[in-house]
Amino acid sequence: MLDNFSPHKHAKVRAWAADDDIQLVFLPTHGSWLNWIEAEFAALRYFALNGTDHRSHEEQNAAIAAYVRWRNARAGPKTNFAPASPIRSWTEYPAKAA
């Protein structure tokens, strides 16, 4: 899943994907919220960076690392995301391994 950043559409990227049997799925314009990592980055920005004035990169890195440790300690599997979404009817999801 990719945003519409122009290098993602470069001929070399498309050739690499075709050679490795990878399907590139581009998000719609202004649809970055569909990519789960975007929500993680938004939370990181909100909880670790907004309203701060770090005096050094080391101090900023420490704040980011502290947030990531806190988040990972409380993370759970993402299941049943948007069960009523019409996108679910457009895509076949592989069965979970037992």
Rank of each mutant, 00 (worst) to 15 (best):
A82K: 06
K78I: 15
A73N: 03
A73T: 01
S56P: 08
Q23A: 15
I22D: 00
L44F: 09
D19Q: 08
N61D: 09
F41N: 04
G76I: 03
L2P: 00
H10G: 14
N50I: 13
A75D: 05
R88F: 07
A42R: 12
N4H: 09
D21S: 10
A62S: 02
P83R: 04
A98C: 01
D21L: 07
P7W: 07
H30R: 06
A11L: 10
S85N: 03
N50R: 10
F81Y: 10
P28A: 04
T91Q: 12
N61I: 10
F81E: 02
H8C: 02
W36E: 13
A15V: 06
L24D: 00
V68A: 09
A18L: 11
E38I: 04
E40M: 14
Y46P: 03
R14S: 09
D20K: 15
P7K: 03
E40R: 10
H30G: 05
H57S: 13
E58Q: 12
F5G: 01
V25I: 12
K96T: 13
K12M: 10
D53Q: 14
D20I: 05
N4G: 06
A75E: 08
A66G: 09
T91H: 07
A48V: 09
D21G: 12
S89I: 02
H30Y: 15
N35Q: 12
A65D: 12
E92S: 11
R55K: 15
F26I: 04
G51F: 06
W70I: 02
N61R: 13
P86L: 02
D19L: 04
H54W: 05
H10D: 15
L27I: 06
N4A: 02
K12P: 08
S85A: 03
N61M: 13
V25Q: 01
T91W: 11
